[in-house]
Each structure stands twice: as structure tokens, then as C-alpha cells.
Amino acid sequence: MFNLYKILFFITLIFGSLIAISSYSWLSMWMGLEINLLSIIPLLSNSKNLYPSEAALKYFITQTLASSILLFSIILALNLKEYFSENMIFLNMILNSALLTKIGAAPFHAWFPEVLEGLNWMNSLLMLTWQKLAPMVLIFYNCKLSSFFLSIILLSTIISGILGLNQMSLRKIMAYSSINHISWMLASMMNSQYIWLIYFIIYSVISLNIILILNLNQIFYLNQLFNSLNSMKMMKLIFMFNFFSLGGLPPFLGFFPKWLVINNLVQHNFFLLSFFLIIFTLITLFFYLRITFSTFVINSNEVLIFTPIKMNYLIMFFNFLSLSGLLICTLIFNYI
């Protein structure tokens, strides 16, 4: 039975994010983020999670630290404006560091895979998608092209590529994948709001597809994945296509936002940045391929006695949306 308190906290979670996004002052934005934080803690301390209290406590401590730094920078900016008029870059750095800690961008990322490891798939989906929305919009309001932002983008793409290589837990792989996509979103933010929005929506749809399949089969580690999906060929194929899409391979929907970002960066003469993003995304694509590799090999183990799991209509709908999305997007943008 779905508890009523979860519905209440889920509504206030959404409400807090919307307050933060639609505010006119930094203080009310901070209040919206705090409502969001206080709403997600009861949802994280759920008995179905692997380490409920540990994950909730880690998340609470890091978010509180980020919130206090954010409030500190807002108060400094409001009260000491005449002193910081020449040095507003320093204040922007403090403010953006707090917001980047909230979304888990490198080098402020250490808490993110650890928290995700202690959660179930539905809470992980919430962390990977909705919890990124409000801080990212606030970063967009305050995003100025600087060496600080460029270094954050490069660090996020390099660290996520390297640290994701030796992971066996699918939740940690999704966390490092998310950090890699954060670098692409920050790169898209520097020039265009619409490209960031398209990227975020498409990333959310692909993550939803993958997590719905993993949640249906209760798969958390690679060895479980290899054993479970061998008996369901259709789901295995869809799952493989979704990981290709997440990596940004051309026939799939995930290629579309990356294509837009690269095009935008090249138009604004960010050749080196786009080169680094592409190269280190190839590393993340390598560990996506490692996940789907069992599908390609001829020799694979199959369980003779298994309980068949029916394909969910919701999963089929979202996968159809994702796999036919590139064609739809191309047709729409041709006729706009």
C-alpha cells in the first residue's frame, strides 16, 4: 500500500522546486530549495532502500552544507555590494559552487554515487532527474562564461569517464553517467536555454526507460543483469538500445541533444571544449557497451526454469517514444 505521507512529501518536493524556479529573489529561491530538501528526506528514509538512514543522512549533510554556502553568498552579495562590485566573480564562484554541489557535478560529486548506492530504483530516478532541475535553472540564471565553468565541465566529463570504468553496481554506473551528462548540460547552458531544456527532457526520458526495466526485474548489479535479461529477448534488446541512446549513438534519440550541443559549441568557437566532451564521452560509451556486451556474444548462460515477467505497457510506451524520438524530432525541426 502506498503511504499517504509519501504523496504529501512528493507534492511538497515538486512544489519546492517550482518555488525555486519561479522566484524573483535569491532568498525565495533558497527557501524553495530548502522545502525541496526537507521533502525528499522522508522519501529517502524508506525501508525498501538498501541503506535508508545512511543514504538520507549523507544526502542531508551535503545539501545542508551547499544550502548554507548558498545563503552565505547571497547575504554577502546583498550586504557588501559596494565592497564586491569589482570582485563579483569571486561571489559568483561561491554561489555556483554551492549549486554545483547540489546537482553533484565534479569535483563536488563524491556524495552522489554513495547516496545513490543506498537507494532503490524509484528514489534513484528522482535523484537523477527531478532533483537536478531547480539547481540547474538557478545556475542558468547566474551562468557567466568563465574559466571556472569551463574547468567544471572538463572535470565532470573526465572524472565521470574514468571512475565509471571499474564499477559493477548499476546504480553507481548511472550516477557517473549522470555526472557526464551534467557536463554536457552545463556546456549547453553557456549559449542556449532551449538546448539545455531539450537535453534535460531527453536525458530524463532515457533514464526513466532504463530504470523502469531495472526496477521491474529488481536488477542492481552487472551479474544479475547478465542472468536476468537472457530469458527475455525483447526486453534485452530494448534495454541495449536505451544504453546506446544514453551514450549518444546516432540512430537513437540520445544523439539528438549531443548533436545540438556540439553544433552550438562549434558555432561559438569552443572547438577544444567540444573535442574533450566527445573524447571522454567515448569512455562512458565503452562502459555502456560493457553492460550490453552479453547480448552480442554467442555463448551466454540461460536459466531453463524461470518465471516469465510480462512487458509493462508503460515501459513499452516510453521505449517507443525514446526509440522513435530521433525521427520525430528531425521531422519536427525540418518543418518549423
Rank of each mutant, 00 (worst) to 15 (best):
L8S: 11
I11V: 15
I14M: 11
I14P: 01
F15N: 08
L18D: 00
I19T: 11
A20V: 05
S23C: 11
Y24I: 08
Y24F: 13
W26H: 02
W30N: 05
L37N: 03
I40W: 07
P42C: 09
L44G: 00
S45F: 03
K48D: 15
N49A: 14
Y51T: 12
A56Q: 04
L57H: 04
T64S: 15
T64K: 15
A66M: 06
L70Q: 03
L71Y: 09
L71G: 10
F72W: 14
F72K: 06
I74D: 01
I75Y: 07
A77E: 04
N79E: 12
L80C: 12
E86P: 01
N87A: 05
M88V: 15
M88I: 15
L99Q: 00
L100S: 07
A106L: 08
P107S: 11
W111V: 04
W111A: 03
P113V: 03
P113E: 03
E114S: 15
E114P: 00
E117G: 09
E117D: 14
M122Y: 15
M122W: 09
N123E: 13
M127A: 12
M127D: 06
T129R: 13
W130S: 03
Q131Y: 08
K132D: 05
K132E: 06
A134E: 06
I139Y: 03
F140D: 05
C143A: 14
F148L: 11
L150C: 10
S151N: 14
S151R: 01
I153Q: 02
S156A: 09
S156F: 04
I158K: 02
I158N: 02
G164L: 00
N166K: 14
K172Q: 12
I173A: 01
I173M: 11
A175I: 07
A175M: 05
S177I: 06
S177Q: 01
S178R: 00
Y194K: 15
Y194D: 12
Y199F: 09
Y199I: 02
V205M: 12
V205N: 05
L208S: 01
I213H: 02
Q218W: 06
N227L: 11
S228I: 08
S231L: 09
M232T: 06
L246Y: 08
G254D: 07
F256Q: 00
K258Y: 08
L260M: 14
Q267M: 09
H268S: 13
F270T: 01
F271Y: 14
L273N: 02
S274Q: 10
T281Q: 04
L282Y: 10
L285D: 09
F287Q: 00
Y288S: 01
I291M: 02
I298C: 11
N299G: 10
S300I: 10
S300Y: 06
N301H: 06
N301A: 11
E302I: 13
L304E: 14
I305Y: 10
T307V: 14
T307R: 15
I309G: 03
I309L: 13
I309F: 08
K310W: 03
M311L: 12
L314A: 12
M316D: 12
S324R: 11
G325V: 06
L326Q: 06
